[in-house]
Design a protein around this nucleic acid. Structure first.
Length: 716
DNA sequence: TCACAAACCCTTTTT
DNA sequence: GGGTTTGTGA
């Protein structure tokens, strides 16, 4: 393959990044929509085909598992050959791979389990209960966060100074209990994956040297969202003989709350000398209005690395700002706008509704159903986090390893089989006292209990044994089919016509069929681990026909022709908890920037004066971010109502919407508007209720797009 | 022990 | 508003 095939279609800066020589490390500051994924993929292809780097010598880190899969697919298209077993994935999944491969040196057994956030929460909760730590004084979430924060900084329990305040002291106590629990049960939480694999390498020089030598090139996407332990991990892997290639955008750092450390970008420039910084600033995604408005917004942040997007695209339409009376009104406005777009030939999946909180999706869902528009909601409860899936996987885990206590607790009485809390408590105590698993404890204890209870317990243990036996020689998906039937899970859910739990279980079978292990990992263990780490496999075959609903966080990296940013209110976006914290407000602003720059053709913002949220009515001011976007890019829309609404900013001119009037539309027509005065029609599009008119008003020379059916225009 | 109801709690974003 | 815990009767 020759060079031109790889550099073809790249702009100067992209090309420069892709073909950077081997002398230097690289930091690619890539703005939104500047083609950074393309650069990464072409860079890998360049290294392989032009520099004879073996694919195994490349370590590529992505932000999500989905991104890794996509990159693999695109790379294999570019190289015209299948890519298998490449070292590509999230930090977590790469760390996982290392730990599975070298589990002994990491002081683990071969079937260690990964705890997701839910499991971790339950364990902490139980430990606190057992040790009489009052959860009203020490909220479990806070304690959980404390533990994860430490690990994400690479700090171990023994490194923490215990002479702190009361909360920290108590948290340390829980931390200690938790660590012991995880160790004895062979459990690894998300943060532990990172810190443990870091220590694995750090403490095994031979191993470290092997990987340092193996990975000639380390490429990292979304570098602005790396946390401290991840940074240490990269630094450890860096030998000076290999090279790092980091792509990121400090303006899109939105995971600070999860330990992401935006300073890592600046640290990179001093720790990885010599390093070449290249800025990708040409945007290929959005209209000029969207870009300049977004630039204006993000300019309000201090301490940026400095970067300014530009585009060759035309101005495009103005950015709509809709002022809603209530959240229902807001949803209704957005859904009607989408319906108009669809009637005018757009596809539902061209439209995305973005929001700050997952809970906001409910109201949109309601309206979409009302208007019979297909939609898909991303996020919220992930597929593998659903209760029915967790039950099924717990049975699978018990078949694989009967001593899995978490799995045991989840399904011992589900579907209900007469083993209540009292009995389980006895099992727990006996297990603790004798240092055995809950499953073993059950077997030993049953004869000492009443016949009824003993029967129930024996029923359960023999059920698991039977499953184990029956499924011994079956492959993964057949195992799952089998356990769903024997356990009674399928039967339990088949009576439930109101939910799609049964469909979800069937979907699990499909997922299992699709699953191929990509290294020498045990199939069942691999699948279970995948279920913990790769939570976003809720992709739906029909998703390209659906309006897309998701949080702004999960929209990162995506693009849509029509984007609706909803709930632009102080206290919601920016969020209440970031108030008075300048660095948190900055992160909210970056989130807003991310949201805005998702839009290709048209961006619509909206806020509501009154909103029902968390069971209460909220009256909020419009988001501060709205006033940070210069008025010249905005088209303010508000419903004309009998209620007089105070304008929050005297400079704002509101476009009024009133019910439909006659129209005699043609280009050049002279019109009169109640607020803007006389103007000429420059252009119009759409028909009937959905048509929009572009008018040049004499007053102030402004040009505006108005919805003709609402604009109350007088034709002269 | 179970099933249902009432009371009670929280309330950001996710690998 | 909804998930979870607690209380009640069967």
């Amino acid at each position: 393959m020759n060079l031109s095939e790889i550099t073809n279609g790249l702009n100067d800066k992209q090309c420069q990044s892709v073909t950077l020589n081997n002398e230097k490390n690289a930091l690619i500051l890539a703005g939104a929509g500047s083609g950074k994924t393309k650069v990464l993929i072409h860079r890998i292809a360049y290294l392989i085909t032009q520099k004879n780097i073996h694919i195994d010598a490349i370590l590529a880190v992505t932000f999500t598992n989905k991104a890794a899969t996509e990159m693999c697919e695109r790379l294999s298209m570019l190289l015209r050959r299948p890519i298998t077993n490449m070292w590509i994935g999230t930090f977590h999944s790469l760390a996982h791979r290392l730990l599975r491969t070298h589990y002994e040196q990491a002081q683990l057994t071969s079937n260690f389990q990964i705890l997701d956030a839910q499991d971790q929460f339950r364990i902490i909760k139980n430990l606190m209960k057992e040790n009489n730590i009052d959860e009203s004084k020490f909220p479990i979430k806070k304690v959980q966060q404390f533990i994860n924060n430490q690990k994400n900084k690479g700090i171990r329990l023994q490194d923490i100074d215990s002479s702190y305040n009361y909360f920290i002291k108590k948290s340390l106590k829980v931390f200690e209990l938790y660590e012991v629990h995880c160790k004895t049960n062979d459990l690894i939480d998300f943060a532990e994956l990172l810190i443990r694999s870091y220590e694995l390498l750090k403490n095994n020089v031979n191993l470290l040297n092997y990987y340092k030598d193996l990975f000639k090139h380390i490429l990292i996407d979304e570098f602005q969202d790396t946390n401290m332990i991840q940074y240490k991990w990269i630094k450890l892997m860096f030998s000076g003989n290999n090279k790092v290639f980091c792509v990121g955008d400090d303006d899109q750092s939105i995971y600070g709350w999860r330990g992401a450390n935006i300073e890592n970008i600046t640290k990179l420039c001093t720790d990885f000398i010599p390093i070449k910084t290249i800025r990708l600033e040409q945007n290929y995604r959005s209209t000029n209005n969207i870009i300049t408005a977004s630039n204006a917004l993000i300019a309000h942040n201090t301490s940026r690395m400095g970067k300014s997007l530009w585009t060759n695209a035309s101005d495009g339409e103005l950015i709509d700002i809709y002022e809603a009376q209530t959240e229902i009104d807001e949803a209704n406005y957005i859904i009607r706008s989408i319906q108009k777009l669809i009637t005018n030939g757009s596809l539902p999946n061209d439209c995305a509704i973005l929001y700050r909180l997952n809970t906001q999706s409910r109201i949109f869902e309601k309206e979409l159903i009302k208007y019979n528009i297909p939609y898909i909601i991303y996020g919220g409860l992930k597929f593998f986090e659903r209760a029915e899936i967790k039950y099924a996987l717990s049975y699978l885990r018990l078949i694989e390893n009967s001593d899995d206590n978490l799995a045991f607790e989840r399904v011992v009485n589900f579907p209900t089989r007469g083993i209540g809390n009292k009995t389980v408590n006895k099992i727990r105590t006996f297990a603790q006292n004798n240092h055995i698993s809950l499953f073993q404890s059950t077997i030993q204890i049953s004869s000492t209990l009443s016949t009824r209870t003993a029967n129930a317990l024996n029923g359960f243990t023999s059920l698991i044994k039977k499953m184990k036996n029956d499924t011994k020689n079956l492959d993964l998906s057949e195992k799952i089919v089998n356990l769903l039937n024997i356990s009674g899970l399928m039967a339990h859910y088949s009576n439930d016509k109101t939910s799609n739990k049964k469909e979800n279980l069937k979907e699990l079978i499909t997922e299992a069929k699709k699953y191929k292990q990509n290294n020498n990992m045990n199939e069942v263990i691999g699948f279970i681990s995948l279920a913990s780490i790769d939570s976003d496999s809720n992709t739906n075959a029909l998703s390209n026909q659906n309006v897309q609903l998701m949080t702004m966080h999960s929209a990162k990296g995506l693009e849509f022709p029509y984007v609706f940013l909803s709930g632009m209110e102080e206290g919601l976006f920016s969020s209440r908890q970031s108030k008075n914290e300048p660095h948190l407000i900055d992160e909210e602003r970056r989130l807003c920037y991310v949201g805005m720059t998702r839009a290709m053709k048209k961006l619509s913002l909206s806020y509501s004066i009154k909103r029902f949220l968390h069971g209460d009515f909220l009256y909020s001011d419009p988001s501060r971010f709205l006033s940070e976007i210069p008025d010249e890019y905005l088209n303010r829309i508000k419903v004309k109502s009998n209620i007089i609404i105070k304008s929050y900013n005297n400079n704002n001119i509101f476009q009024s919407i009133t019910p439909k009037s006659d129209n005699q539309l043609h280009i050049g027509a002279l019109v009169k508007h109640a607020k803007f005065g006389l103007g000429t029609v420059l252009n119009f599009e759409g028909q009937g209720n959905s048509s929009r008119v572009q008018i040049k008003f004499k007053q102030a020379g402004s040009i505006k797009w108005l919805i003709s059916s609402y604009a109350n225009l007088e034709f002269i």
